[in-house]
Design a protein around this nucleic acid. Sequence first.
DNA 1: TAGATTGTTAATCGATTAACAATC
DNA 2: TAGATTGTTAATCGATTAACAATC
Lengths: 214, 214
Amino acid sequence: MDNKDISQAVISRLPRYHRYLGELKNNNVERISSQELSMLMKVTASQIRQDFNNFGGFGQQGYGYNVEFLYDEIGKILGMDRTHNMIMVGAGNLGQALANYMNFAARGFVFKGIFDSNPDIIGKKVSNMEIMPMSELEDFVIKNDIDIAVLTIPKTGAPDVAERLSKAGIKGIWNFAHVDLNVPDDVQVENVHLSDSLMKLSYNINRYRQENIT
Amino acid sequence: MDNKDISQAVISRLPRYHRYLGELKNNNVERISSQELSMLMKVTASQIRQDFNNFGGFGQQGYGYNVEFLYDEIGKILGMDRTHNMIMVGAGNLGQALANYMNFAARGFVFKGIFDSNPDIIGKKVSNMEIMPMSELEDFVIKNDIDIAVLTIPKTGAPDVAERLSKAGIKGIWNFAHVDLNVPDDVQVENVHLSDSLMKLSYNINRYRQENIT
DNA sequence: TAGATTGTTAATCGATTAACAATC
DNA sequence: TAGATTGTTAATCGATTAACAATC
């Protein structure tokens, strides 16, 4: 409610802080200063302090930051202290690969079901879940308290599925379909456009090549 | 050479322009104004014109932009007019899924080989390629003129593999490993940190939830 | 020619960095 | 207490938006 609307630029950096702090914690580092962390992460100490202070003071003058405390606090900000129920929509190569990726479960993102429109694969098992038909989508989302739907379907079907999920009360969509989704304000969308990312890499390769013609 | 160093913010938007223009082209739209495109893409017309003008004038006063021409020009900027030879390093779930994803080949990103450190799966076929042992990595990169390596291996092995690839003359690394890679300036890195993306979604879901407690 | 719309300059906004007083 | 380092304000930098003259 007293939310100062923290910029997405800051939010985007939080998982990286969380990762570095987790590693420091694993290495039994107890405290770290913004200066030390800045050298490790190759960002400015100023940015680190500004970022953290968006959420209140996590440090102590003259001491720095307690690694474990900071790790936990950033974790809480990112919602790592609660479980998120997920479904996979699309049981193709990518969908199956992600459903089998166990690192998500370790962070509290738990797959509860998987759906596909292809009748030939319905009933087949993926990561201990039977592939369900699309007709059962809304019922399942409501009955199983699903927060997040992962969309790994072709772009043609995605807008329609996104609308169905929104109406069924989904909270977030992790969208791997290569299309922009228009959903109500109460549904958060995070896009992973793999081919966009690959194109960006391609640009940077070609730019470097052109800048360095000898 | 006369490169004005275009900001990564602009570059990040190019693939999205390319996608929208491709769809307009498929719908036989011949011309479009920055105003029309801005409504379609939900960005400002000003930003569109600024972005395009980083690369010189693609439009015509009083007319707008020719869709097919603009699509092709942005494609060229992104390197879509050339083929990129790729290898997959890591033949786990994600690696196999991406290797089978045919959309990349359609855009000129062609997998030439796939590698894994697990002796049990070497020789097995993935997307018509036999999985090769890591010992053959450098030789293969050099002999097959590989531009891009896709890393879908656990984070522990990634820095070492990145260094080997760099020494073998790789141009770009598409990094799915959950670690930051330190490579020389002549190697471009594009990160896809899936769990970071999922954490960001988690944050936005929880923020919305907290802002709307009734 | 008149109307439309770009290319580009100027104004604004937001994000990053620097500086330093507060304080542990 | 003295030294270290945060929290926070101020300065700078860069990116976005607005405005409009150029021109098709």
